[in-house]
Each structure stands twice: as structure tokens, then as C-alpha cells.
Amino acid sequence: MDKEDARQQSLEQLHERRKQVVQLHKSDLGIMQIVELSGLSYPTVGNTIKLFEAGGWPAIKPAARGHQHGEGRRLSVDQEAAIGRIICDSRPEQLKMDFYLWSRAAVGELIRREYGIELGMRTVGKWLKRWGFTPQKPIKKAYEQRPEAVRQWLDEHYPAIEAQAKAEGGEIHWGDTALVNTDVRGRSDAPAGKTPVAYAVGGTRQKLSMIATATRQGKMRWMIIDEAFNADRLIEILASLIKEAKRKVFLILDNLRVHHSKPVKA
């Protein structure tokens, strides 16, 4: 008789087969006889009997397979929440870090400093994406709204900016603003037709502003703002961006009114 592979069975099926093994074992049959009668492998039968003898019927119930939600993460849920609050409430320079704006490198350094945990840039990026901190591509919205005007600007004006930046050893950044909703519930597995419920403390939902910049080389910098975005806050991030880049910055923004305000142009 071909032996069944217990790994290919559902947890319910495996549980029933283990019950059968125990019943045969209690009938004083030997392991080899149970193997022949059940069609299960010798290790599966032997392990089932050991589990039963050690813990009775509850012990033979199969455990859930694979990683449980949150298992294997280097940061605990509380640690992740704490890091998220720091990013929202502070800038790196306020924390006496060697960064002026938040980036994956800055967040990685913050995690190392707070918890002594070293995380790779890719892991930090996944964490930020899961919590809604990924900067949007700055020109995506503009392309969708006025593709002809954007194409004309790229063809007629951008080459001169690119040439000037290269000649002066500068760096071109594309900037945009976005909203970050702190009510991030994600997804959860549940039986079909039964929507999972996520409980939260009432009145804690917030919407924060985020201004972010990105270069064509993939460098991203951002700052979380918990109040109205105005000229003063834009000037603040411009100053930090220049400090971070350590060279001349060519920042390309959209036509938001605050971008053309007198304090910004001064």
C-alpha cells in the first residue's frame, strides 16, 4: 500500500487520521500493523502515538502551519508603533541624528539607536510601506491631469535645468505633498462573507501632511507635518534639504499656491 503524505492533508483530515491511529493503538496493535492498516508512514504513526501518550487527545490536534501574523518580525508591534510616532512627531536633526530629513537610512539608524536592531534598507522600506509612509511619485498626478503640458515642459524647459544642475554640481529633486491617514487597518484573513472587525480607540484617527522629494537616482527625503502646510513649513524643509544634500538643490514642484508665495520666492 502506498503511504500517504500527511503534509498534503488539511489540518482537519490530519486530525481525523491521528484519531484513527490512536484508536488502533488502544486496540493493542503494533506500529507496523497500524502503518499497514492506516496507510500512513511509520514516522507519522510513531509521532502520533508519542503525542498521545505525552498529552492525551488534545496533544494530537495539529498546530496551524506556517508563520502566524507578526511572527518572525524583528520589531514588535509596540516598537513599530513607537517608531511611527517618532517619525510623525520629530525630524532627524531634532533627535541629534546625522540626517536632516527622514529617509530609509535615517529610519534604519533610528531603529538601531532605539532598539539595537540592524535592519537592511529593503526591510525598512517594507516597514514604511506597510505603515503608509511611502512617498508618492511626484509627477504621477500631473501626467494624469495634463499630459500634453507636462510633456511640453519636459521637452522645452527640463533639459536646461538638467544641464545647469550638472554644470553647477547640483542635485535635482522632484517634490510633492500628500496626506498620511493614521487609520491604517490593512487586510485580515476571514471566512468568506464574514468581514473582519478591527477595534480602535475612538477619536484617534488623524490625517497628517507629508512633503516628500525624490531624485531620478531613487533618493527619497520626507517630512511629516501635523499642522497646516504653509510657506514657513516649505521654507523649513527647503533649508533641511540643502543641509542634507550638502550641495545646490534644484527642486521641481507643482503649481500649488504656497509654492509661488512671496516668502518662498524671497
Score class of each variant (00 low, 15 high):
Ala64Asn: 11
Val45Ile: 07
Arg18His: 11
Lys262Asn: 13
Lys243Leu: 13
Pro92His: 00
Thr204Trp: 07
Glu16Gly: 10
Ala54Gly: 08
Met32Asp: 15
Val249Tyr: 02
Leu11Tyr: 02
Leu11Arg: 06
Lys219Asp: 08
Cys88Thr: 11
Leu119Glu: 06
His69Ile: 11
Val45Ala: 03
Pro147Lys: 02
Leu40Ser: 12
Lys246His: 13
Val21Leu: 09
Thr123Tyr: 02
Glu114Thr: 08
Leu101His: 01
Tyr42Arg: 15
Phe133Ala: 00
Ser103Asp: 00
Arg18Lys: 12
Gln164Gly: 05
Met223Glu: 10
Arg146Phe: 12
Glu244Gly: 03
Arg221Val: 01
Pro135Tyr: 01
Leu29Ala: 01
Thr48Met: 02
Gly66Glu: 04
Gln79Lys: 03
Glu168Asn: 12
Gly193Trp: 08
Glu114Ala: 05
Asn230Gly: 09
Leu128Ile: 04
Glu148Ile: 06
Ile237Ser: 10
Glu80Asp: 06
Pro191Asn: 06
Leu75Trp: 10
Ala149Gly: 01
Ser209Cys: 09
Arg185His: 15
Asn255Ala: 06
Lys219Phe: 00
Asn230Ser: 08
Lys50Cys: 05
Arg85Phe: 09
Ala192Arg: 14
Ser209Ile: 06
Gln8Val: 04
Gly193Tyr: 07
Thr123Glu: 08
Glu53Leu: 07
Ile117Thr: 06
Pro43Ser: 05
Glu118Trp: 01
Glu93Leu: 00
Ala82Trp: 00
Gln94Trp: 08
Val107Cys: 02
Ala64Trp: 00
Arg74Met: 08
Ile49Phe: 04
